[in-house]
Computed example of a mutant assay.
Amino acid sequence: MLEKLREAEFANQALLASYALQQLQAELAAQTAADAQLTAQYQAEATDRDSARQLAAKQPKDLVRLSITFALIAGAAALGYAVFGGSAMTLLKDPTSSLTAGTFVGYVFSELKQSLAFWFGTTSEATAQMRTITGFAVSPGTVTSDMDVSPAAPTVNVAATPAVGGADNYRGS
């Protein structure tokens, strides 16, 4: 009886070892596939940058890219001077106009960042960070509330409102 129990135990250990081996092989295959995908993505980004720069090199008299970059640099400098120099103080005190001005400043600096990335390159980490921030900003419920605030539904169900320390609709939790 004891001999059969030992045989069953060894068979069970062998079966568990084969399961562990299969799991490790599956993890290795998944990691290899992920590495291959990441390598392909890096190569695609490098090829895209190279093709854009080769196109720019083939057009030496095309000053459009350079003009746009310098216009964006000059605009960013002018905006920085206006904000930090104090000449935009009255504009920034009004909530509506400051929101519009802030949107415009953000747009100009975003375009400047893209233009400078063309000339000097960018890292894949910066691209991934931008993708993550954009995904967070446009996902429903992360920045805005999921609650319906239309005039047709002016009442709020107090029983369904979370208690203090509960879900925070602003952060989407």
Rank of each mutant, 00 (worst) to 15 (best):
D62N: 09
F109T: 08
R49T: 10
Q43M: 07
F118L: 13
S110G: 15
D48A: 14
F109L: 08
I73P: 03
L112E: 03
Q59N: 07
S51P: 05
D62V: 02
S110L: 11
L63K: 15
L91I: 09
F109W: 08
G121C: 10
F120L: 08
A57I: 04
A71T: 10
G86N: 01
S115N: 14
G85W: 02
K61L: 10
P95M: 03
I68F: 15
K61Q: 07
T47I: 08
T69Q: 10
T100A: 13
D48I: 07
V64C: 00
S87L: 09
L116Y: 08
E45K: 05
F104T: 11
T103N: 02
Y81K: 00
G106L: 00
R65D: 05
L92S: 08
A88F: 03
G75Y: 01
F120C: 03
A46K: 14
T100S: 10
D62L: 01
V83L: 06
Y107P: 01
K93S: 09
A44L: 12
A57K: 11
V83C: 05
D50F: 13
A57M: 06
S67Q: 15
T103D: 00
S98V: 01
E111I: 12
D62K: 06
L116G: 13
T100E: 12
L63H: 12
G80T: 07
T69V: 07
A82Q: 10
D48L: 13
F84I: 03
Q114I: 12
W119E: 10
G121T: 14
K93H: 12
A77Q: 07
A46T: 14
S110N: 15
L99Q: 05
I68G: 13
L112K: 07
L63T: 15
R49P: 02
A46N: 13
I73L: 12
F109A: 05
A117F: 14
S115W: 13
W119G: 04
F120R: 09
V64N: 05
I68W: 07
A57E: 09
P60D: 00
D50M: 13
T96C: 00
L91R: 06
A56R: 13
K93N: 09
F84V: 04
F84K: 14
T96R: 02
F120S: 05
L55N: 11
G121W: 12
F118D: 15
A44E: 15
E45M: 11
T90G: 04
L72F: 06
S98K: 09
L116N: 10
R65Y: 04
S67P: 01
T96P: 00
K113C: 07
G75W: 01
L99R: 04
V105S: 02
W119V: 15
